[in-house]
Simulated scan of single mutants.
Amino acid sequence: MSEAALAARLARHAHLAIAVSGGVDSMTLAAFAHRLRTDGAGGSLEMIHAVSPAVPPAATERVRVRASLEGWALTVTGTGEFSDPRYRDNPVDRCYFCKTNLYDRIRAITPAAIASGANLDDLGDYRPGLLAASEHEVVHPYVEAGMDKSAVRALARRLGLGEVAELPAQPCLASRVETGIAIDPDDLVFIDLVETRLAALAPAGAVLRCRVTHGGIAIEIGEGIGNEDALAALAGSLCRDHGRRLAGVGPYRRGAMFVHG
């Protein structure tokens, strides 16, 4: 039912550009839409991936590999958000400025309708980026089709997307920086390093966060991962090696970097 609804929503757009971040939502949407067009649904389809210090290199590589495997028409571009001081200042609505720059860049590349991978679960979060999407008339096919994250994962498995289907939620690296701390590319490189190294000691799909806070580096670990002592020891070692202060290791908290007021 959901897949039929999703196909119907995608078919409304003769010319579609999908913003592909490298996460499960946008990757699955791109794969599903591409296979629909290949099967004769018609119309043009392009995938746009934006590179930035806030995008993990592994995500970019994932998009490039999948595009090659499936034959996507892929354009890789920069987002330009680091030239925007409103983004770099990292206010609570930083995501609005990030997405504004992203959609401005995509619109400069193509006149096609822009689609995002937002799903129903995203509507319950604080997502200033959705305002930027609305201002740019971005469409959200999953939302229109009534699909939540679990439905997206089920679709990814049916499409045979392998590890993509099990990817943990991975908002951009800047989301790990506490509100009011300026976004610094060096911090983002460190965050990616720590999370990549910690992930090697954790089960596939584990939720791990390296947070840059006003009190130092905070590590958050999802439920049921185990191996917490080894993860904490590695985090401490990485912080020492890079001249950072480890503020502590604790449970994962969604939205922990937003400091209001």
Rank of each mutant, 00 (worst) to 15 (best):
A5H: 11
L10H: 03
A11C: 02
H13Y: 15
H15K: 14
L16V: 12
A17P: 03
V20C: 15
S21N: 08
D25R: 10
S26T: 04
L29N: 03
A31N: 06
D39I: 00
G40I: 10
A41V: 02
G43I: 09
M47D: 00
A50R: 01
R62G: 13
L69V: 13
L69M: 14
L69A: 14
W72K: 05
A73H: 14
A73N: 15
L74D: 11
L74C: 12
T75A: 10
F82K: 05
D84I: 01
Y87L: 08
P91Q: 02
D93I: 07
Y103N: 09
T110D: 09
I114C: 04
I114S: 10
A118Y: 03
D121Y: 12
D122L: 03
L123Y: 09
A133E: 14
V138R: 11
G146T: 04
L155N: 08
R157S: 07
L159S: 04
L161Q: 07
V164L: 03
A165Q: 01
E166L: 11
A169V: 13
C172R: 00
L173A: 03
V177C: 10
A182C: 11
D187C: 05
V189E: 15
I191H: 11
A199W: 02
L201D: 07
P203K: 06
G205P: 03
A206K: 08
R209Q: 08
C210K: 10
T213S: 12
A218H: 13
G222R: 07
G224P: 11
G226E: 07
L231H: 09
A233E: 15
A233Y: 01
A235H: 05
S237Q: 15
S237E: 15
C239R: 11
H242Y: 08
H242D: 10
R244V: 08
R254S: 11
